[in-house]
Design a protein around this nucleic acid. Structure first.
Lengths: 116, 116
DNA sequence: ACAACACTTGATGAATCAATGAATTGTTTT
DNA sequence: AAAACAATTCATTGATTCATCAAGTGTTGT
């Protein structure tokens, strides 16, 4: 055998060719969004908001979960600007922040659906 | 003022109309993928694989990070079937598992790019 | 003003996650 | 077979995350 013809001088740990570096801040921001979406309870909650805006007690009722827990999840999602909130009297109505987020969730649910 | 005309009898915590429930298992799976993508180091790694397949030491070299750490991240990503691996001699070449994942990452990086 | 309702915040503890370095496995080269 | 190289696994430790429940804020109705 005559050595590795894989990628000429590809293992020098020098600057790699043909590899596009993504700016670090962008990865950080994108990862933060994924992290916020990466929890079953939060994602279940968000999947409800795919239908329409809902107030906290509605969500709590539908998911049959602690109202405080729901509120905390919403707070986290708000901090990542995944949901937005609107007050109407005593009620706080939450909805998905934008189409981008909506698409991301739809895409992931579709993927989770077809695979296994 | 004459009470809330928001949504007639919307706060009875009964079965909510107009809200589509997503199957629990699908949310779990989708959340697991998001969780795996929800880490800056892993996402940076994956952003490299957007360009082309790479072996562990290449990735470690480009990211200037501990080889063991890179290998562990890849193991996790493999366990979620986000990346696939192929052996070639001493080298293990990693690449993105499918177009769905690729799209998800591209989408998120685009979002992270335009916003703030 | 006071009670009731809708929600948020704070504090605590349990569980999960991730970085590190040492030891190990697998492959190729000599 | 031994040395060199590529990558993985293991164990430890520190950090982060999540649920729970009590206490607090803001709004409305009487």
């Amino acid at each position: 055998m005559h050595g590795d013809e894989l990628e000429p001088e590809a293992h020098e740990h020098s600057i790699q060719p043909n590899v596009q570096m993504v700016e670090s801040g962008i990865c950080d921001r994108a990862a933060a969004i994924f992290r916020a979406l990466g929890d079953s309870n939060r994602l279940r909650l968000l999947s409800l908001l795919m239908s329409r805006e809902l107030c906290v007690s509605e969500i709590s009722g539908i998911l049959d979960d602690n109202l405080s827990a729901v509120s905390q999840r919403l707070k986290l999602l708000r901090s990542e600007r995944i949901v937005v909130v609107r007050r109407e009297g005593k009620h706080m109505f939450y909805s998905l922040a934008d189409g981008h987020i909506r698409e991301l969730i739809a895409n992931a649910l579709a993927h989770g659906n077809e695979h296994d």
